[in-house]
Design a protein around this nucleic acid. Structure first.
Lengths: 355, 355
DNA sequence: ATAAGCAATGCAAACGTTTGCATAAAAGAT
DNA sequence: ATCTTTTATGCAAACGTTTGCATTGCTTAT
C-alpha cells in the first residue's frame, strides 16, 4: 500500500491561508471565530474529507479513550457475552476496545499486558488465565502510578484493584441443595482446577450445601477436571460410575464437563435424571437445547461485562485513587431444566441464588 | 484517577545528563553507542520501569499497527471464531485488534467505521450488518488514498476490496443434494433475508440441487426468515407443516432456525429424521449436542478470520495498490448427523463441499 | 482625540519518539 | 605537529492537535 497521507488541519489552514489554530477552533465550534471563517473551514474540511487524527489527540491529551481487555478465549459463550457487554458500555461512553486473548497461557497473558500498556490504554479489564497463580505482571504495573485495572470472573485473592465476580459459592450451594431437594443421596462433584478461585468457591458451595443437609462430603465423589472439555467430563464421570458408590446426582464445574458427564451416563444405559441427575455451571447457550435440557447455574455474562466496564470508567475518571476492599458480587441464578428435575411437582423455574 | 505520567525517554535522558536521542539509540541497540552508555541507560530504564509510548511512535511513523474489526454480533459462535482467528494472526504479526459490533444496525456500522478511521487503524476488516444494502460508508472512505479494507462473509456485490467468503452456493447445494439422496421428496427451505448475498447464494444452491435432480423448486416450500431466531424458525416451520404439501425434508439458512424448526416438528408429533429430515447451516457448537445431532454445513470461522487477517496484512504491506477481482472462496463442508440420516447404510461422514 | 474594550486571529509550546546531519573528541596516519 | 578518520553524542525537525497568551484592527465610552 503506497503510504497514504490523510489530510490534516494544517492542510486546511494552508488552503485558506490561515493558522492551524484557527482551523482547530473553527472545527470545534469555538465562539470567537467569525461565522465566515467557520463556514469556509467547514466547507474545505468536507471537501477534502477531513478526519481528525485521534493519535495526535491521544498524545497531546495523555489519554487514548481506549480500554484493553484480556480474556482466556473469545470462543466461549460466557466470554463473548462479557465482551459484548463491555463493548456496549465502552461504546456508549466514547471508548474503544482493544482485545487480546491469552489462550489460557500465562506467558501470553503477560505479553498481552505489556502490549496494552505500551498502547497506553486508559484502563485494563482482565480475566486471568487458568495458568495464572502469580499476579505481579498486573499488580506491579508501572510502579509509580499504575494503569487502572479491573478484574472479573477469575480474580487474584489479594489485590487493591476492583473485582467483579459472580456469587459462585452461592450458586454452587443452590445447585447442590437443589439436587438434595430432588432426592439425590450421593452427589458427586466434577470440580475445576484447584488453583482457580472460582473452582474452589464452587467446591466450597458444594460442600457447604451437603453439610447444611447434615451430610459429610466424600472425597471419592469429588473429581478434578483440569481441562473443561467433554472428553474430560466423560472420562471423570466414567471413573465415578465405576466406583463402589455410584452417584445419583452430579454437579459439574461447567456445562461442557456436564455434557461429557451426560454422555457417559447415557452410554452406561442410565437415565437422566431418574438414575443420575445432572447440573452444570454457566448456562451456556447450548444447555437449553440439550435432551434433557441441562440445568445450570446462570452467570450473567453481559451484565458482568457492563459492570466491569462501568467500574473501570469510574475508576479512570475518579480523581482520588480509590481503595477497593470487597469485590462486587453479582448474583447467579439457578436455571432448572430436565436434567435435574425428578419430582413432577416442581415446575421449571428460576431460583434466585443471590439472596 | 490522578493523572499518571509515565516516564519517558526524556526523563531518562535528564537523569543521566545526556540527549534523548542517545537514550533512544541505546534502547534500540544502535551500534554507535558506547557499551557504558548503553548499560547506564538500560539500568535506569529498568529502574524506572520504562515502557515505550506507542502513541508517540504511531504519530511519528504514520502507522498504528492496529487493525479495526466490525462485526454484527460478538455473541455468535461463528463470529467469535472469526475474531479468534483474526486475533491469532494479528498478534503473531505484532498487530493489535480494535473491535466494534454493529448489532446488525447500519447506523452503528457507519459510526464504527468512522470511529476506527479516526483511530487511524492500518486496516479494516468488516462483516456487514443485515441492514446494510449500500456500501458507500466503506467504499468511499477518505477519497484520496483509502484505508485498506477486507470484507468477509457478508460482502458487497461490487467492490474492489478483497472479499473472503465461504462457498455458500456449493454448501447449500450439497446439503440439499444430501436430503435428496436420503429420499426426501418435498424439500423445504427456510431462507434468510433476501438482501444478504449469503442468503441468496444458499437459496440458489438449494434451487440448483433440486434442478440437477430434475425437480422444480416450489415457491410454497420456501419461507423467508428475517431474523435468525428459534422463534422465527419455529413459526415458519409451523406454516410449512400446516400447508397442503407437507415437507419431508427442510434445509435451513442457519442452525438456530433449524433448531426452531426441529422444535416445531417434534411438537407436531413427527419424527426426525424419519418423517422430516433437517439440515442447518454454520455448524454451531450446539448442533453437535442436539438430539438428534443436527446435520449442518460447516463454516470454517477461525480459518476465515486467519485468511482475512493475512489478506489485510498483505494488502497493508504491499506497495502497489492491488486490484482484487474475484473473492477468496473457502470450501464449506457438510457435517452429517442424526437429523438427516435416514439410511442406515450411510455412515456419519464429512463430505467436502469445496470441489 | 485618546483610552479602554472587544472580536478575530496568529504564535508557539507541548505531547514522546526517531533519525539525518552536525559536532566534538580522540585516535590514527603522514 | 598537522590532517584525516573514527567514534560517540547532540541538535532539531517531524508527526497532528490544542490552547494560553499575544497581537491586530475595530468599536465604544469618556
Amino acid at each position: 500500500m503506497s503510504k497514504r497521507r490523510s489530510i490534516t488541519i494544517i492542510d486546511i489552514a494552508k488552503e485558506l491561508g490561515i493558522a492551524p489554530s484557527t482551523v482547530s477552533r473553527a472545527l470545534s465550534g469555538h465562539s470567537k471565530i467569525s461565522p465566515e471563517t467557520r463556514d469556509k473551514v467547514m466547507a474545505v474540511a468536507k471537501k477534502w474529507n477531513y478526519v481528525p487524527n485521534k493519535i495526535a489527540l491521544s498524545l497531546k491529551n495523555q489519554e487514548t479513550r481506549t480500554l484493553g481487555l484480556i480474556i482466556p478465549e473469545i470462543v466461549h459463550y460466557f466470554f463473548s457475552n462479557v465482551i459484548s457487554g463491555i463493548e456496549e458500555v465502552a461504546n456508549k461512553n466514547g471508548y474503544s476496545l482493544l482485545i487480546c486473548q491469552s489462550g489460557e497461557s500465562l506467558e501470553r497473558e503477560i505479553k498481552a499486558v505489556s502490549t496494552l500498556v505500551r498502547q497506553r490504554v486508559d484502563g485494563l479489564i482482565i480475566c486471568c488465565s487458568r495458568e495464572t497463580e502469580e499476579f505481579d505482571h498486573v499488580e506491579k504495573l508501572p510502579e509509580n502510578k499504575g494503569v487502572p485495572v479491573v478484574y472479573f470472573d477469575r480474580v487474584p485473592p489479594n489485590s487493591k484493584h476492583p473485582k467483579i465476580i459472580v456469587d459462585d459459592l452461592m450458586g454452587a450451594k443452590q445447585a447442590t441443595a437443589h439436587l438434595i431437594e430432588q432426592g439425590c443421596k450421593n452427589i458427586a462433584h466434577l470440580a475445576g482446577p484447584e488453583n482457580l478461585l472460582i473452582s474452589r468457591n464452587r467446591l466450597s458451595g458444594y460442600r457447604l450445601a451437603l453439610q447444611n443437609a447434615g451430610r459429610q462430603p466424600k472425597t471419592e465423589l469429588i473429581k478434578y477436571c483440569k481441562e473443561g472439555t467433554t472428553e474430560v467430563g466423560f472420562a471423570k464421570m466414567n471413573e465415578l460410575l465405576n466406583q463402589e458408590v455410584i452417584p445419583d446426582g452430579v454437579f459439574a464445574n461447567n456445562d461442557i464437563i456436564a455434557l461429557g458427564a451426560m454422555m457417559a451416563i447415557k452410554k452406561k444405559g442410565l437415565k437422566i435424571p431418574e438414575d443420575v441427575a445432572v447440573i452444570g455451571y454457566s448456562n451456556w447457550q447450548l444447555s437449553e437445547f440439550m435432551e434433557p435440557g441441562l440445568s445450570s447455574v446462570n452467570q450473567p455474562g453481559a451484565e458482568m461485562g457492563e459492570q466491569a466496564c462501568q467500574c473501570i470508567l469510574n475508576y479512570i475518571e475518579s480523581d482520588e485513587p480509590v481503595e477497593f476492599f470487597s469485590p462486587i458480587i453479582l448474583p447467579s441464578s439457578l436455571v432448572i431444566r430436565g436434567s435435574s428435575l425428578r419430582k413432577r411437582s416442581a415446575q421449571i423455574k428460576v431460583l434466585n441464588a443471590g439472596g
